[in-house]
């Protein structure tokens, strides 16, 4: 039986976040293609409800990728996003769900290695934790 591919959703800001992904692809870096990316105008646009709905709809893990905090195109978008991600992580922890399923990352558009590293980290987490459904893990 083929190995189950993890379901990972990545919300990427259209500036440094998405650009770092594009740069990684253009420079031939290898990364797991099972990640689904959602482009948003700014990481600050991502709300807790978007992250929770992704998990509710079947994602194993979700990450938000924004600009570096001191270099955010919209100044505070990455900072806002980090606070929201932390709030969702607390909600998950309160319910006994692994908070590692949700992560916030920052990347520079000029760093071709950042995106593959982020994807590798989330794939590792998703594979280790498996799907949220306890029955499917056994």
């Amino acid at each position: 039986m083929a190995e189950r591919r993890p379901k990972i959703i990545g919300f990427c800001c259209e500036r440094h976040g998405m650009d770092s992904a594009v740069l990684a692809a253009r420079t031939g870096k290898q990364f797991d293609a099972s990640v689904r990316l959602v482009q948003v105008p700014c990481a600050g646009r991502v709300d807790g409800i978007h992250i929770l709905q992704a998990l509710e709809d079947g994602a194993d893990a979700v990450f938000v990728l924004g600009c570096l905090e001191k270099n955010c195109y919209y100044d505070t978008g990455s900072i806002e996003a980090r606070k929201r991600v932390e709030y969702v992580r607390q909600m998950l922890a309160e319910m006994g769900i692994e908070k590692e399923r949700v992560e916030m990352f920052n990347a520079a558009s000029t760093n071709a290695w950042a995106f593959p590293e982020i994807v590798a980290k989330m794939v590792e987490v998703a594979k280790k934790l498996g799907p949220i459904e306890e029955g499917e893990r056994r």
Partner: peptide
């Protein structure tokens, strides 16, 4: 509105976890 949506979603995730 947002808090209700988030709570409903969180409860559904918990249900997903516990079947």
């Amino acid at each position: 509105e947002k808090e209700v949506k988030m709570l409903v979603s969180a409860l559904k995730i918990k249900n997903r976890k516990e079947g």
